[in-house]
Design a protein around this nucleic acid. Structure first.
Lengths: 151, 151
DNA sequence: CCAATTTAGTTGCACATACAACTATTGTCA
DNA sequence: TGACAATAGTTGTATGTGCAACTAAATTGG
């Protein structure tokens, strides 16, 4: 006969979304501490700089699209980065709403310091996997992301 | 001869920590929307309720340990859940600092509504993987989490 | 050509969260 | 026993972040 013990229980610590969240937060917070301690830069600011390192002279909107960061957050972060002279900005001549943003010389210097550290950290993280496992993991992440987007 | 084009660039969209973060945020935000729309509950609040569904009559500190949520956040969330009568609390007799928290009848009813939805969402997410891939992914996540904790 | 709509970016506001300081209670050990 | 340390929980404060309203500029359609 059914009783209270038949209650369907959620095992939180085995629940995929929870485990992914905990894992991601752990990894991100380690990175955040490093960037904060060494360069006084937040993850958000770093992501903006990272995108500008790859794609110079793009607009705030394009940064937003490429980093998935809210445009209001982009706006405030860009202000901070401008004040600290890590980036430069001027308005597009053909469209005076749109801005053209790029790393300044200082920003580039910081960028070139952080990039090797980032790769080093990524390698340290993934050293618990074999090459094959790294590829598996990479593909699984891509597939899951695709799929989550379609839900 | 080395020139500007030799600059080491970070491909953000292929950087593991970034991809994990984006994936996890996407998945969590879908869940958050569901809980918010149907039950007016945040992810944090749900995690607290989930742990109480598994482990009734535990203290705020134990909730914090099991969910990795900051104790100050636990405190404020517990206040909200008490006000909404989703949980009950009384103080431990042997230690008047420690509290004993559990789901109320209302809380249990909500819990029993959410749990099947959670499992359903998890299944929907993972349906893009075969059984084998699900196991692989699960093990890789566990290993990576272990490893990240040791860095 | 001009009103209405769309787009880029900024700002106000509400709420989430982290860290540290604080209170109250309990435990330790000389 | 009594001073000191440790623990459970709360609260203050600073900052992060998301959503919506807003401004200014560009585009569209009649």
């Amino acid at each position: 006969m059914a009783n209270k013990q038949d209650k369907l229980v959620l095992r939180l610590e085995r629940f995929f979304p929870y485990r992914l969240s905990i894992l991601s937060n752990k990894i991100s917070s380690i990175i955040a501490d490093t960037y904060k301690d060494k360069f006084a830069i937040s993850i958000t600011e770093w992501r903006i700089m990272a995108v500008l390192g790859e794609f110079p002279d793009i607009s705030a909107d394009e940064i937003s699209a490429r980093t998935q960061i809210e445009k209001s957050l982009i706006s405030r972060s860009v202000s901070k980065l401008l004040k600290r002279k890590l980036i430069d900005r001027d308005m597009a001549e053909d469209d005076r709403r749109r801005s053209m943003i790029r790393l300044s010389d200082t920003g580039n210097a910081v960028y070139e310091e952080i990039v090797p550290l980032s790769y080093q950290y990524e390698r340290a993280l993934l050293e618990c996997f074999s090459e094959t496992e790294q590829d598996q993991f990479s593909h699984l992440i891509d597939r899951l992301y695709e799929h989550a987007n379609s839900l």
